[in-house]
């Protein structure tokens, strides 16, 4: 009987909040070494438990994009959902889209200017492959009660309706064995995740839905309430600050080349970097203002060195309420699944 290694985040209490799905995180190298293709790996992973699962396969040779437009190592090459040990044949799993490097795509999606500067030689994977995507809108995979949406960043039990947010850097931190922060998303995070970067075949949106100075939520003062009560797992603020700093140092301009999320605007101000203020729409300002990120606040921020920003990341990067820092080792189980 063969075996495949997996990292498992069990359903139930993690960091004091309820995780509604068992998450099974696989390494593409382990999948290959086991002689499995992605679909077979999904079916093998589904046998781990009869309960609802999200299943994600990471490839350490890839990068991917966050909804802010930041690039990050170790993208997902396939996402899945299982229930009762089954993977729904039509909606249960999807491979991700491999975006080839071209000058045209860098022109259309200027955040990709950072690709060759930060990650030369890495493949870029985005959201679900258009050749396989079945659902008209959402980048979701589903089986039974298990919903693994927005390319694994929102997981939900469709019967109990419990949900947990796993922004890419948070879930990847668990896969990598890094510390994570677990708490309620809070109003600033709720606003922030609506400040998206437009891309084709993206992890969150299948087609460009929102200009980088605008808000996809477009909900006025209600934007802060949309996700604020959801439990959420993120990377540490220091790690996130590091990503923002590196992208700003590549010359990416917030509200033009990457999103106008509060954290990005904050660090850009602290670093004295250019911001495309004129591209931030009135609708985006309504949402930013509603959680205290007014133009006056941004103008009042002190100029800091990169080292000072990293030291003060917990204070400078907004978002999350009642959050605790948890070691991945305290949550994640290293298992072997037989097949």
């Amino acid at each position: 009987m063969a075996k495949i290694k997996a990292r498992v985040v069990p359903e139930g209490n993690i960091g004091g909040l309820y995780n509604p799905l068992t998450l099974i995180l696989l390494d593409a190298d382990d999948v290959k070494a086991a002689g499995l293709d992605y679909e077979q790996a999904m079916k093998v992973a589904a046998t781990y438990t009869d309960g609802p699962c999200g299943i994600d396969i990471y490839d350490r040779n890839t990068i991917t994009t966050t909804s802010d437009g930041l690039l990050a190592e170790c993208g997902m090459v396939a996402i899945g959902a299982s229930d009762q040990g089954l993977v729904n044949p039509k909606y249960g799993w999807l491979p991700m889209y491999d975006e080839p490097y071209t000058e045209e795509i860098v022109k259309e999606e200027p955040n990709l200017k950072a690709w060759q500067m930060l990650y030369p030689g890495y493949r870029l994977v985005k959201g679900p492959s258009p050749d396989y995507k079945k659902l008209p809108v959402h980048n979701a995979v589903m089986t039974g009660k298990a919903g693994n949406n927005n390319s694994a960043s929102e997981i939900m039990n469709l019967v109990t309706m419990k949900e947990m947010l796993f922004p890419f850097l948070g879930l990847r931190s668990l896969f990598w064995g890094d510390d994570v922060r677990i708490g309620h998303a809070g109003p600033v995070f709720s606003v922030s995740i609506g400040m998206m970067f437009p891309e084709r075949y993206g992890r969150i949106s299948y087609f460009p839905t929102c200009e980088s100075g605008n808000t996809l939520h477009n909900s006025g003062a209600f934007a802060q309430t949309l996700k604020k009560d959801l439990p959420c797992v993120t990377c540490t603020k220091k790690m996130f600050a590091g990503y923002i700093i590196r992208h700003l140092n590549c010359g990416l301009v917030p509200a033009r080349d990457i999103a106008c999320a509060p954290s990005i605007l904050t660090l850009a101000c602290c670093m004295g970097k250019e911001i495309a203020w004129e591209r931030i729409t009135d609708r985006a300002w309504v949402e930013l203002d509603s959680v205290g990120f007014t133009r006056e606040y941004f103008d009042s921020l002190p100029r800091l060195t990169e080292e000072e920003i990293l030291e003060r990341a917990d204070e400078l990067i907004p978002g999350m309420e009642d959050a605790v820092t948890v070691k991945a080792a305290d949550i994640v189980l290293d298992v072997e699944i037989e097949f």
Binding site: D50, D83, Q84, L86, N88, Y91, V137, H138, A140, M142, T143, G144, K145, G147, N149, M156, L158, V159
Partner: peptide, 13 residues
């Protein structure tokens, strides 16, 4: 959009 539970929910094992 409303996500609805899929058929496996009703298999009862």
């Amino acid at each position: 959009c409303v996500f609805e539970p899929l058929e496996e929910t009703y298999y009862e094992g």
